[in-house]
Simulated scan of single mutants.
Amino acid sequence: MILYFSGTGNSEYAAQQIAAKTDDECLNLFTKIRSQDTRELTSQKPWVIVAPTYAWRIPRIVEEYLHKTKLNGSKKVYFVLTCGGAIGNAEANLKRLCADQGYQFQGCAEVIMPENYIALYSAPNQQEALKIIEAADALLARIAEWIKNGSSIPAQPISFKGKVCSQIINPLFYSLMVKADKFYAKADCVSCGQCVNVCLLNNIRLVNGKPQWGKDCTHCMACICRCPVEAIEYGKHTEGLNRYTCPKKLMDQ
């Protein structure tokens, strides 16, 4: 079974591509995490966890879910992390997670997808994004073959920079950056409530028709990127920047 977490569609697309090639089923973790549903899951096929990379590691909210939820049946677990640049030494943390839970670590694949973390970076336009996704498709096909054949995902060399990013910068990122206080809605907000619906942590509510953010946030960028009128900003950095949702997924629907 393929479990995926996705804020703007990259990891969802990757999960669906792998599922189609392995004849497996996908489970979106959005509802599970949002409702704090940690009931046991069972699959006789290997588990495949597909998620974005947050500061060179799997998102903490996904890691916490995997620690709380028992995966029955197969003990083999594959990880596929989408990213805009690199996953650093995310593998080391995932090996520890598997050891703690009694799972057999089958490797971690790094899949470059279009950048979506517009709180710090810039997202590509649709044409650029499609080129990046096209390049990722070949790797996703290879990952699917490894899973079908029961092979481990080949380990990649980890640089000193990658180790520093995952082990030192990641905690700093969460303590200094992952906050909701810079999000705000402009006057052209149409009070549609889309941001409320896509917030994984139930952190947004409409007050007099305008969204207000609470203290819980995982910086998935769903609210700002899925706003239909681009009325949400993150400080001044996002002014004029492209919003991003996976165009390949949208085109294929």
Results as ranks from 00 to 15, higher is better:
S6G: 05
S6D: 08
N10H: 08
E12A: 02
E12K: 06
Q17G: 08
D24P: 05
E25Y: 10
C26E: 05
L27Y: 11
L29D: 03
T31N: 11
I33Q: 00
D37H: 04
T38D: 09
S43N: 11
Q44Y: 10
K45E: 11
K45P: 03
W47H: 01
V48A: 03
I49Q: 01
I49D: 03
V50D: 04
A51L: 05
A55M: 11
I58H: 03
R60V: 10
V62I: 12
E63W: 13
Y65G: 00
H67G: 12
H67M: 07
K68W: 10
K68H: 11
L71Q: 01
N72A: 07
N72K: 12
T82W: 06
G84M: 13
N89E: 15
E91S: 15
N93P: 13
K95C: 10
C98R: 04
Y103P: 03
Q104K: 11
Q106S: 10
M113N: 07
L120D: 02
A123E: 06
Q127E: 15
E128A: 14
I133C: 08
A135D: 10
A138Q: 14
A138K: 15
A138V: 10
L139Y: 09
R142S: 06
I143H: 02
E145P: 02
W146H: 12
I147E: 01
I147S: 07
I153Y: 09
Q156L: 09
Q156P: 02
S159Y: 04
F160D: 07
Q167S: 08
I169P: 05
L172F: 13
F173D: 00
S175R: 15
L176S: 12
K179Y: 10
A180I: 02
K182R: 13
D188F: 13
C189H: 11
V190S: 08
S191G: 07
G193V: 06
C195S: 09
N197K: 10
R205I: 02
P211M: 14
H219Q: 15
M221D: 07
A222M: 05
A222G: 07
C223S: 06
I232F: 12
I232L: 15
K236F: 05
K236A: 09
T238E: 14
G240P: 07
L241S: 15
M251K: 12
Q253E: 15
Q253F: 08
